[in-house]
Design a protein around this nucleic acid. Structure first.
Length: 427
RNA sequence: CGGGGCGUAGCGCAGUCUGGUAGCGCAUCUGGUUUGGGACCAGAGGGUCGCAAGUUCGAAUCUUGCCGCCCCGACCA
């Protein structure tokens, strides 16, 4: 994925684990971000934005300023105040919550933001898959008791299933260690890919479970869905138990593969709310610390994960939902009036139809242009020259397009529109 | 942090051992011939040789220090 992203000009490395997002890569990143946002909103989470730079003082309240170690990038401002580039936002969101919420009547509440994080990884690698600076969606839930917290957890669980499905990915929730964040309920969402960083083991049945529907009522009982996805065996190598795997899963259903972690959800109770005194009034006149959870999705990592899942020798093969452009339009003879007109009309028609089109009118040879579009991974590639039009779809890429008949210039727009109705439906 | 390697044009590299005018391929630009799946000819532009100090008449090349990056091991979205 890293090689493809570099060659396609999606990113440029500016330091170890630090990348600039070039225009093509940016488009993909933004599309993924938007899908993540839509599904968070659908689940009832509310968007906000917290800063990247935080005060050390805040992290001393939770005790993590010293506990976090060298992975935290610590900086000092001109006044000698200790600051840090946020690796996560539990402390800050807890501080914001306690300043603004006092009553159980304001609960439940799920807040999220999509913001750059920095973790000074020991060894950054695999490009944006494990960068030091990365874009993450992190959500935080606040509830009056554990039962309510469980409902918030379930909302995010289902939102994650939908999010990854919309990105064209098959994600598998796996029970996970809670690690330094703490708590006792946690799942990792793993996407299967041959080049994944961790080994995963699961029941084949998990791969066939249906994605929760778009019109699902998130305020209803989600537990049956969660049970469905958590009753079958699924574990990463860290907690994999070969004995249990062989006992619970029939031999023909055992899947052992590799995967990429793209999301992680935690319930951690009052780990932060207690020490930081984020309390709410109950109905009985007492105050109790809120029950919290946090929910992360690696947005920038997803760009790499999707490429890992969808690519071939020639380049990326984006799902339509995140492709940087839906179509590439090549004018083989820029300057030729008939060509320019046909391309101009077609481009206008495509854009009007909502088909995002990359128009290349720099002239030159088709092979080079197609190779470039293969690399970037445009689902449709349309070339127009003096003799008419040719086009192809990503599944076949450039290889069998030569067999297609040419369409005269005058009928290009009409022809492509017809194709649009079938092959590009749903974009 | 331990171990291994690299730093020379936008990208990929040669040159370093043995000090003597900074090169090659791709890309870019100009002109021309071409043009339907990675063209050809001619020409051009582009360099603090990672940084600094030292040795020397002279350093990409030798010495020392520093910086950056990559790969292999313990962490994570």
């Amino acid at each position: 994925a890293h090689q493809l992203m570099l060659r396609a000009g999606m990113i440029r490395q500016e330091g170890a684990g630090i990348y600039a997002w070039l225009p093509i890569g940016m488009r993909v990143l933004k599309k993924i971000e938007q899908i993540v946002r839509e599904e968070q909103d659908r689940a009832g989470a509310v968007e906000m934005l917290m800063p990247t730079i935080q005060q050390a003082e805040l992290w001393r309240e939770s005790g993590r300023y010293d506990a976090y170690g060298k992975e935290m990038l610590r900086i000092e401002d001109r006044g000698g105040r200790e600051m840090l580039f946020g690796p996560t936002n539990e402390e800050m969101i807890t501080e914001i919550f306690r300043a603004g919420v006092r009553s159980y009547k304001d609960l439940p509440k799920i807040l999220y933001h999509i913001q750059w994080k920095f973790r000074d990884e020991i060894r950054p690698r695999f490009g944006v898959m494990r960068g030091r600076e990365f874009l993450m969606k992190d959500a935080y839930s606040f509830d009056i008791d554990k039962e309510a917290a469980r409902r918030s957890y379930n909302k995010m669980f289902v939102a994650y299933l939908r999010t990854f499905a919309r990105l064209g990915l098959k994600s598998i929730p796996m029970r996970a260690d809670t690690g330094p964040i703490g708590g006792d309920l946690s799942h990792e969402f793993i996407v299967l890919a041959e080049t994944g960083e961790s080994a995963v083991f699961c029941d084949k049945g998990l791969l066939d479970l249906p994605t929760p529907k778009r019109d699902l009522d998130f305020e209803g009982d989600l537990q049956p869905i969660i049970d469905q996805f958590t009753s079958l065996y699924a574990a990463t190598d860290e907690i994999h138990d070969t004995g249990a795997f062989e006992k619970e899963v029939a031999e023909t259903n055992r899947v052992s593969a590799r995967g990429i972690e793209v999301g992680h959800i935690f319930y951690f109770g009052d780990k932060y709310s207690a020490p930081m005194k984020a309390v709410v009034a109950t109905g009985e006149g007492s105050e109790i610390p809120v029950e919290m959870g946090s929910y992360g999705i690696g947005v920038s990592r997803l760009v790499g994960a999707i490429i890992e899942a969808f690519h071939d020798e020639a380049g990326c093969k984006w799902p339509a939902a995140v492709a940087p452009f839906h179509a590439g339009l090549i004018n083989l003879k820029a300057g030729d009036e008939a060509c320019d007109t046909a391309c101009g009309n077609l481009y206008a028609a495509l854009e009007a139809a909502g088909v995002e089109t990359l128009y290349d009118d720099t002239g030159g040879r088709a092979g080079e242009k197609f190779a470039r579009m293969d690399l970037i991974g445009l689902p449709w590639q349309i070339v127009i020259g003096p003799r008419g039009l040719k086009s192809g779809v990503a599944e076949v890429k450039s290889r069998i397009d030569n067999a297609r008949e040419e369409i005269p210039l005058g009928k290009v727009t009409e022809h492509v529109s017809t194709l649009l109705a079938s092959s590009l439906a749903g974009i």
